Amino acid sequence: MTVPVWPSELPRPTRPGWQGQYSDPRLKKSGDAGPPGYRRRWSSVARAVQLTVQLSRSQKATFDTFFEYDTRMGVLPFWMPDPTTDGWPMLTEIGTPVLDGAGNPVLLSAQWLCLFGSEMPVERIVGVEFHYSFPVWVMP
C-alpha cells in the first residue's frame, strides 16, 4: 500500500491559521519537595499542528477527494510538503539567498508524514473562497 501524497494543486497553508505544539514526552517524577523533576516517557515526539488553507471551488473538490477517498476520511497517514521549509530559499549566514550556477535561488525541500488530528476539518465560506481548518499530527 502506498502512502497518499498531499495534492500539489492545493496551496500552502496560511500563516494566520498556523499553530504548532509538540506532544509532551516528559513524565513527572514524584516528589513532595523542591522543583519538579522529569524523565523522558518516550524518545520520539509527534507534533500537533493546526493548519488553514484557502481554496477555490476546484481546489475544494481536490481537498474533499483527498480527505474522503485518499486518506479514507482521515484514517490513513499522508505525505505533505513541510510548509515551514519546503520551497523556501536556502540562505547564507547573513540572510542572502544561495544561488545556483544560473543565478536561481536554491530551494529547500522537506516532507512531513502526517495523520489528520482528532477533529474533522472545519469548512467556512469567505466570499468566493473556502477556508478549511484542520489539525494534523506530524510524525517523528
Rank of each mutant, 00 (worst) to 15 (best):
P83F: 02
W79T: 05
L55H: 00
Y38S: 02
A46F: 03
R26Q: 08
Q54E: 15
R57Y: 05
D100N: 14
F78L: 01
P35F: 11
R40H: 11
A61H: 12
A46D: 15
S8Y: 05
G87T: 10
R41V: 03
D64Y: 06
E9A: 15
K28Q: 15
V98H: 05
G95L: 02
S30N: 09
G34C: 05
R40I: 06
K29C: 06
S58L: 13
F66D: 07
S30Y: 10
E9I: 07
A48S: 05
P7V: 02
G87H: 06
T84Y: 06
P7E: 00
T65A: 12
D100T: 10
K28I: 12
G34M: 06
T84P: 04
K29E: 15
L10Y: 00
T92Q: 13
G95K: 01
P36H: 02
G74A: 09
T92P: 07
Y22G: 12
L55V: 02
M80K: 05
T52H: 02
L76W: 09
S58H: 15
L51D: 06
V45H: 00
Y69H: 14
Y69P: 01
L99Q: 07
V53C: 03
Y22D: 15
R40G: 07
S58I: 12
S44A: 12
Y22L: 12
Q50A: 13
A102V: 11
T52E: 14
D86F: 10
V45A: 01
R47T: 14
R15F: 04
D64G: 06
R26F: 08
G34A: 04
V98K: 13
